[in-house]
């Protein structure tokens, strides 16, 4: 490369820098010279998974307590009948049955309260939440709707079982379909793994008024690698 060529390149670059800066500054929507980037925050993924697991275990405990209480009531009834025959003990047994029932009711109330708290953590999500594969699988098991943000060709080649295709690059073609979907329901957006269309789709949905949109970052690649249900 001759000196003249190097000088020409330097002049061109200088012109580009000056014109670029001036054009950007005078533009009606100037771009910040350094963008914000896209930060992925998985901090809520684990806590939400924990809440979901807690909800499940509380539900199980509630069921078993219910069974236990029914058994206890039956046995208490039997005991009561037996002891009624012993006239002296009747009043005391009725009193203890009442006390057991009261304590069971109190436990049931506490379980209901904690169930409400656990489900409240999942509600009122406006900003999409970044989630990992374990929580995504938990949501899948609960039957929530997955949305494939990749192009249709990629979706056809393989996708999460039951997922619907809404390619972000063709969002406008699917806007009507999105408008018709329940905005209070839970949706999980995903793409491959090294991609951002799921993030963009999730935020576009949030802007449209969807309240509970999750972004599954591992995407199809991670899901497929783990051998989870697929189409």
């Amino acid at each position: 490369m001759s000196k003249r060529t190097a000088l020409e390149i330097a002049v061109i670059i200088l012109i580009v820098l000056v014109v670029g800066i001036l054009y950007n500054i005078s533009s009606p929507q100037p771009l910040p010279f350094i963008g914000e980037g896209k930060n992925i925050d998985f901090s809520r993924s684990d806590s939400l998974l924990l809440a979901l697991q807690k909800q499940d275990s509380i539900q199980k405990t509630a069921d078993s307590l219910k069974n236990l209480s029914m058994k206890r009531e039956d046995s208490l009834k039997l005991l009561n009948e037996q002891r009624i025959q012993d006239s002296l003990m009747t009043a005391r047994i009725q009193d203890s049955t009442k006390r057991v029932n009261d304590s069971l009711k109190a436990v049931q109330k506490r379980i209901d309260d904690s169930l409400k708290t656990a489900s409240a953590t999942q509600q009122d999500i406006v900003k999409p939440i970044d989630i990992k594969v374990d929580f995504a699988k938990a949501l899948f098991d609960k039957g929530y709707q997955f949305i494939d943000a990749r192009d249709e060709a990629d979706y056809s080649a393989g996708s999460i079982k039951g997922a619907i295709s809404i390619p972000f690059h063709h969002l406008e073609d699917h806007r009507k379909r999105l408008e018709g979907m329940n905005k209070d329901a839970v949706y999980i957006a995903y793409c491959s793994s090294a991609c951002d269309v799921s993030i963009d789709l999730a935020y576009a949905m949030a802007k449209m008024g969807f309240k509970k949109v999750y972004i599954f970052h591992g995407g199809w690649d991670e899901w497929n690698k783990l051998g989870y249900p697929a189409n």
Partner: peptide
């Protein structure tokens, strides 16, 4: 590119193409 640097390229690259 590192996150956030895409704006710099978006501002100057089209002008580099245009002027060249």
């Amino acid at each position: 590119l590192p996150a956030g640097w895409e704006n710099l390229l978006a501002i100057f690259l089209p002008w580099l193409e245009f002027i060249t």
